[in-house]
Structures are given as structure tokens and as C-alpha cells.
Amino acid sequence: MTPTLLGRWQTRLLLLATIGAFVTSPFALGYLRPEASFSFFWVLGYVAIFGIAWDIVYDYLQKFRWDRDWPGVLQLLAGIWEAAFLAVILKIFHLPGIPQETSLFWFALHYSLVWLSVYISAQVIMRILFLRWRFHGGQWL
């Protein structure tokens, strides 16, 4: 991938709002756990909001790469970093909408599934639905 900053934002928001929400639903509705909890949607929201800031950092780092690309492996590292950051913030500070006693296991499971499905959708669905997406650095609008 060779995303631009605008492309990163547009793809992140679209995929979290669609695929991300789809993957989050079974967690939030309690299909996978004993009790339902809307806090998973809050997690999704924070990933989106913090991500807008992180994308600026990634875009800056990308300029140090000769090819100005952002391979899958860096997307994975960025994903792990964002998860760790969010988990620390969650545990140390109180974030509205997410109880501080949230289980890290469920957080990690939910986050990983969202990341994986968003990554795969960006590789497959975005290309098939949006013909111009890959030529515009990930912008679909």
C-alpha cells in the first residue's frame, strides 16, 4: 500500500464504521460472552479517534521511506502499537464508555478480529468496490 494521509483517514473511518461495526456486533450483543456490553463500540470509536492522530504520525514516518509505501507488516506493527496504547490508557485513565475493569483478554480478542477484518477488507473489498481507491492513496470519496 502507498496511502496518502487523506486516504488513510477515509479508509480507516469507512472500514471501522462498516466491517468494524459488523465484527463488533456479536461482542456487544453478548453472542460471544455471557453479558452484552456496549463498551466494545466505544473501543471502536476510540480506535477511530486516536487513529486519526496516529495516521498523521504514520504519514510523517512514511516520508522517510524511499518508496513512500506502507507494507502490511508496518500496518500490523501500527495495529499492535495502537492496541497497546489504548489498553494502557484504558487501565490507567478512565475513558468514557469503557469500564476500567474491562478484561484485557476480551479487549485483545475483539481488537484483533477487528484489525484482521479491516486489513483483509482493505486488500479485497475496497479494491473490488472502489476501482479508483488504489490509485488515490486509499481515498474512496
Binding site: F64, D67, R68, D69
Partner: peptide
Amino acid sequence: AAQRQVENHYEFQPFNWPKACWGGELRA
């Protein structure tokens, strides 16, 4: 901020242009 890699007087790049020339920032 970027520089292309060189070894034994060969300059390396995966393709004939930096990758972002196709659909990334350099294209724009």
C-alpha cells in the same frame, strides 16, 4: 528525507519508479 540504497555501484529499487508514483503521494 529518503535516500535510495546502493551496493557495488548498483542502485536498488523494487520497480522502475518509487512505489508511490503509481497510486501514492508521489503520483499526486
